[in-house]
């Protein structure tokens, strides 16, 4: 069974393993717009980005446009998707609206982009946990056959983000164009950090006090130069 953490130097809370198993099943399943094959290719590309030489050079450059090169890709995904996955993974703090608009001009629909973002960020969360704790990365799951659901929410508009959204201005709704990715995000969020009900409790403790959790969160965001 996946996510048993046999190599962990310390016991891992059961809810973390359970949430990561659900996240892996979600990754391997047909998405809303992408096939399970495409989703797992994006997952593999997210992992590959961590050791991509071009990404390393570009991250170190004053501007991401200052370096030419080719990504160390491990899939047959189109180059613009590979580039998007690698940039989201390795240099998110320097993404811009014009970058997003250029990507949309290649013909990638916003729905598909949001789903790609959902896969990339799930991978980053699960692998980030493993790497921080010194665990071997979990092998990617096997494909679960099926067809994408192609379910679109009504009334999505570009309001508080580059991508169309529904609902109020909040990070919770930023992937609302693809509701299945919001559900997956909240599931993992509850185990890795706090559930939505727990978010309102400033005295909640989960191995760390709430201020200690927020210190870690703030430090990560600072190092990523994310100021949301």
């Amino acid at each position: 069974m996946a996510f048993e953490f046999a190599d962990s130097p310390v016991p891992v809370r059961a809810d973390i393993g359970e949430a990561q198993r659900r996240a892996w099943r979600h990754l391997a399943s047909p998405g809303t717009w992408l096939t399970s094959c495409q989703r797992l290719a994006i997952a593999g590309e997210t992992r590959a980005a961590r050791s991509c030489g071009y990404c390393t050079q570009r991250k170190a450059a004053l501007s991401p446009h200052a370096v030419d090169g080719t990504h160390d890709s491990v899939t047959d995904l189109p180059p613009e998707i590979v580039d998007a996955v690698h940039r989201l993974t390795t240099d998110p703090g320097r993404l811009t609206r014009s970058w997003y608009e250029d990507l949309m001009e290649t013909g990638l629909p916003p729905t598909h982009y949001v789903e790609i973002l959902g896969v990339v960020t799930t991978m980053v969360a699960v692998d980030g946990f493993h790497l921080a704790l010194g665990l071997a990365l979990e092998p990617l799951p096997d494909i679960i056959e099926g067809e994408p659901s192609r379910i679109s929410p009504a009334g999505a508009e570009v309001t508080f983000a580059w991508v169309p959204t529904t609902g109020r201005h909040s990070v919770v709704n930023v992937m609302s164009l693809v509701p299945a990715e919001v559900e997956a995000f909240l599931d993992l969020h509850g185990a890795h950090y706090l559930s939505i009900p727990e978010m309102g409790d400033m005295t909640v403790e989960k191995g760390l006090t709430r201020p200690q959790m927020e210190l870690v969160a703030g430090r990560v965001s600072s190092l990523n130069e994310c100021f949301y």
């Binding site: 703090g93 960020t121 980053v124 946990f129 580059w162 995000f185 969020h189 890795h192 990523n224 994310c226």
Partner: peptide, 17 residues
């Protein structure tokens, strides 16, 4: 786990503007 979670949250925010 919080490190992993905010690696995710940061990309959600920065990847969507």
């Amino acid at each position: 786990s919080v490190i992993g979670n905010f690696e995710k949250m940061n990309r959600m925010a920065d990847g969507t503007g």
